[in-house]
């Protein structure tokens, strides 16, 4: 375990060094600006979002929306959402090159970093369920956005119920 960590850390440092020695090589969507400089290339001018991909995949999977909602303070998958997970599992098994990102989210109340922990639990229970349904591990990544990407704005129970969710998106449809 310790050796692994050391190795991983060395890798991180190597990446960091590489980033320092070459010119900034960031994605189109992130711009670094110095303290006294004006903002660089506007991020709004070059967005890499493909919302149509999500809609297309939902249609292929025969579901309305590739989202699993959770109760307050819970990471239990409700039976209502099992058909969605089964549709994803069937597709992923048929398309071994397909890759998904399972993004866990929390409602906006409380500590942002603690909410990252809650979102990761929600992402991981869906990954575990898909594993039980036969999906191979390397087809799935998880991330927690905590309360950083609320589904709707607002501070009421309805908004919160929409925020506590996992969004499943396809990085690669296979």
């Amino acid at each position: 375990m310790k050796a692994n960590l050391k190795w991983a850390m060395m890798l991180v440092m190597a990446v960091a060094l590489a980033a320092c020695s070459s010119k900034p090589d960031d994605t189109n969507t992130t711009s670094i600006v110095g303290g006294d400089q004006a903002i660089g290339a506007g991020v709004g001018s070059n967005p890499d979002f493909d919302d149509s991909m999500d809609a297309r995949m939902a249609k292929i999977l025969g579901i309305e929306k590739n989202t699993v909602y959770f109760d307050f303070d819970s990471d239990v998958i409700k039976a209502d959402y099992l058909p969605i997970l089964q549709a994803n599992a069937d597709y992923l098994k048929k398309h071994p090159k397909a890759r998904i990102l399972i993004a866990g989210n929390a409602d906006p109340r409380g500590s942002r970093e603690y909410n990252i922990g809650l979102g990761q639990r929600r992402a991981d229970v869906v990954r575990q369920r898909l594993t039980m349904m036969g999906v191979t591990a390397n087809q799935m990544r998880t991330v927690s956005y905590g309360s950083e990407k609320p589904a709707v704005s607002g501070n009421d129970d309805y908004a919160y119920s929409q925020d506590r969710r996992d969004d499943i998106t396809y990085d690669n449809a296979g």
Binding site: T30, S31, V33, P47, G146
Partner: peptide, 13 residues
């Protein structure tokens, strides 16, 4: 106020 970093994905903490 000046930006140190802008992104289309979240920045935290």
């Amino acid at each position: 106020a000046k930006p140190l970093l802008t992104s289309t994905q979240p920045i935290m903490s």
